[in-house]
Design a protein around this nucleic acid. Structure first.
Lengths: 242, 242
DNA sequence: CCAATTATTATGTATGGACATATTGATATA
DNA sequence: TATATCAATATGTCCATACATAATAATTGG
């Protein structure tokens, strides 16, 4: 029945356990593959309840630092399949937070049957029409992103009525479409003539492309390709564990 | 003292709560900004302990689906600052799992004072030498990645002795250096002459660059730029929540 | 009327005790 | 020997209860 409060002042016991283990791993005392003490033992060592040790280990497992298996125990994960979180902010937020002025211009808006490559991505039947939108996002009058988007009208009929004059389709979709899971693909390409012009580049200049497909429940809502000038655009993820 | 087992067979109560809330969000019944019932209320509704409801909400918060604030309550998160996990597998694993044969070739290995741009990234003093390694990773004899790496010898003195003949420096580092936090930067560029040749490309071809800086505890261990042919390389992240 | 103080409230965490479940290893059986 | 059964074990989850903490709302004093 001894409450903590004795070892360290403000830090929660489960965090203490977590940090202690992390430190051992970082310091090399625990190497990948090594077996970590069981929950019971940890609880004894750190003078806490088993559930508390359990939470520490569970969170480390969620973060990919350790691997847990019933009966076998907990081991330090092989740092092979690292993963990193990239945050993808709203374009206007991103631009403004970089200290630039955001502006937006609609290039094209039409309802047509998409080419097969897009049709497959949207999971549409042949000759089904979709909303096609092209627009450019500017940072202090410099083109920052060219957006080429297709919207499945079966999933969001309202989109056909939206103007997209002052607001980008992404902002509109976020407002109108409930929630969505997404798939992201990143790659680089040489800008063809038309895209180069829209981004104020020369034909052949490197372009950073972010492709995103979005679903609600079962339907594909939208497929978008976001093109950024390779010379200036950077996508960052800094991970400092704990 | 009523154990669950009545509502749904195998699914844990906390997952039931979690899924129920997720479904309401996905279905649009709960929109961004909406207030979710408090833990107490949820516990009552789902006939579970408050801790159970708490866990459901906590995990949803960790996943960025909801935002929690003491006294105020829990709200559906604005889907603005979305973030996605990209997994970055080991190069040889990546190539082999794509069904190709992996091979590796060392291009250059020297110990010199790095240029200022690199020096700053490695956080080294002026005129401090570092290990510079360049190598190419092949997928079925096609160049897949050109690796340009700098290693801080103060952090890993052993690296100077390593041959890197048969093994890439990344694999070596993962074995020798305990654990590490990393920063990632992605961008696109036009290949200069030398890089183009190494990747079997033409000067100016789009290249996808992954820049990574790695630390242990406080020291910068390594700074690496990984160059991929833009025409074939894709970086994927598919997120399907729950 | 504004500022400082004090409740109130919802989330955050800890504990001991209990049962659930997967997996391993030993044992018994065909 | 191969296979089925069962015990042991470490993780996984649940509960009731308790106290901690942050932020808002209410109250009080100047």
């Amino acid at each position: 029945m001894t409450i903590n409060k004795s070892d360290k002042p403000g830090i929660s016991p489960y965090l203490q356990v977590k940090q202690a283990i992390l430190q051992q791993i970082r310091g090399g005392e625990l190497k990948p593959g090594d077996l970590i003490s069981g929950e019971e033992e940890l609880a004894l060592h750190f003078k806490c309840a088993r559930v508390t040790a359990h939470r520490a280990l569970r969170e480390l497992a969620e973060e990919g630092v350790v691997v847990r298996k019933r009966k076998s125990g907990t081991r330090v994960a092989a740092p092979s399949a690292r993963s990193t979180r990239f945050s993808i902010p709203l374009i206007d937020v991103e631009i403004r937070s970089a200290g630039h002025e955001y502006s937006y211009s609609l290039v094209k808006k039409s309802i047509i049957a998409p080419p097969d490559i897009v049709r497959v991505k949207l999971d549409l039947k042949r000759d089904t029409e979709a909303l096609h939108i092209q627009c450019v996002h500017y940072a202090s009058s410099q083109p920052y992103q060219f957006e080429d988007r297709w919207i499945n009208l079966a999933a969001t009929p309202n989109a056909a009525k939206a103007a997209f004059d002052n607001e980008g389709p992404n902002a509109w979709l976020l407002r109108e479409v409930p929630w969505s899971d997404a798939e992201h693909i990143l790659y680089a390409e040489n800008a063809p003539e038309d895209r180069a012009r829209l981004l104020d580049l020369t034909r052949g200049d490197a372009v950073f492309v972010l492709e995103r497909r979005t679903w609600t429940a079962d339907q594909t809502v939208t497929f978008v390709r976001l093109f950024h000038p390779g010379s200036t655009f950077r996508m960052r993820a800094s991970r400092v564990g704990l």
